[in-house]
Amino acid sequence: MFSKKQLFAKGMMDISPHMLSVIPFGIICGAIGVELGFSPYLVYAMSIIIFGGASQIVFLQVLSGGASSLVAITSVGIINSRHLLYGAVLSEYLDKLSFIKKLLISYFVVDQGFSESNKFFKKNKNEQHLHYHLIGTGGTMWVCWQIATLSGIILGSFVPEELGLKFTIPLTFIAIVVQDLKKIDHLIVMITCGLSSLLFFDAPFKSYIIISPVIALIVASLILRFKK
């Protein structure tokens, strides 16, 4: 049986390798926010409130493109909807916790932390206080992400305008999706989303940002049914 401290330390150790990609991504997020003309205080506050790399970049890009606050917030909500699935999976191991504790812990659940903690939970189902491992992974991610974002904000404040960092936005998303280009069903969903965004580009309030992923999700669900 692991103690609470051991579980927390184990979570920190398991998530550590992911920092090699998370820290540069956080620096880019902070730098891009300043590059797009947002206040450093706003960029850092967003990093604390949203706490999600892709979501933060989308939020900044959508707002800087002239979309309404409602569209920006909805876009972030759609991107982060995967956390509903994370919660459904983790609920099996956290069912004894109070609602308040679950709510607080959910703030620290991110992609990499969920992946590592879920693997650990499956191998150690009989352990008590498993949530300390999740706090270890999420807490480590949070601290590193905030430091990286702050570093990016400082960097972005000193980068000359002619050496702008806006080009890193498409590069960042290419890096995220490039691994899925090898899978034909994922490729179909990506193409559907891209074509839908072009088709509905002139929709009011720049709502094509919401319409296109919804259409892509419908196509994805149809593909899953067909494969079954």
Rank of each mutant, 00 (worst) to 15 (best):
residue 103 L to W: 14
residue 25 F to S: 12
residue 80 N to L: 15
residue 95 D to E: 14
residue 66 G to E: 06
residue 90 L to C: 07
residue 18 H to C: 09
residue 92 E to I: 11
residue 110 V to D: 02
residue 135 I to P: 08
residue 50 I to D: 10
residue 95 D to G: 05
residue 75 S to K: 06
residue 119 K to Y: 01
residue 89 V to E: 08
residue 101 K to S: 14
residue 119 K to F: 02
residue 85 L to P: 13
residue 49 I to D: 09
residue 63 L to D: 06
residue 131 H to D: 13
residue 113 G to C: 07
residue 126 N to L: 03
residue 25 F to R: 02
residue 81 S to F: 15
residue 131 H to A: 08
residue 39 S to L: 08
residue 136 G to S: 01
residue 44 Y to K: 07
residue 36 L to I: 04
residue 122 K to S: 13
residue 37 G to M: 11
residue 100 I to R: 11
residue 48 I to K: 01
residue 31 A to S: 14
residue 119 K to W: 00
residue 83 H to W: 05
residue 126 N to W: 03
residue 140 T to H: 03
residue 79 I to W: 09
residue 51 F to C: 08
residue 40 P to L: 05
residue 25 F to N: 01
residue 72 A to P: 10
residue 52 G to T: 04
residue 136 G to I: 04
residue 48 I to G: 02
residue 70 L to M: 12
residue 78 I to L: 15
residue 129 H to N: 15
residue 69 S to P: 04
residue 35 E to G: 11
residue 86 Y to M: 09
residue 131 H to M: 10
residue 63 L to I: 02
residue 21 S to E: 13
residue 63 L to Y: 08
residue 71 V to N: 01
residue 102 K to S: 01
residue 96 K to C: 06
residue 112 Q to S: 13
residue 140 T to Y: 09
residue 76 V to F: 08
residue 126 N to V: 01
residue 21 S to K: 10
residue 63 L to E: 00
residue 59 F to D: 02
residue 85 L to R: 12
residue 88 A to W: 09
residue 133 H to V: 03
residue 131 H to T: 07
residue 116 E to L: 15
residue 116 E to H: 13
residue 131 H to N: 14
residue 98 S to H: 07
residue 112 Q to G: 11
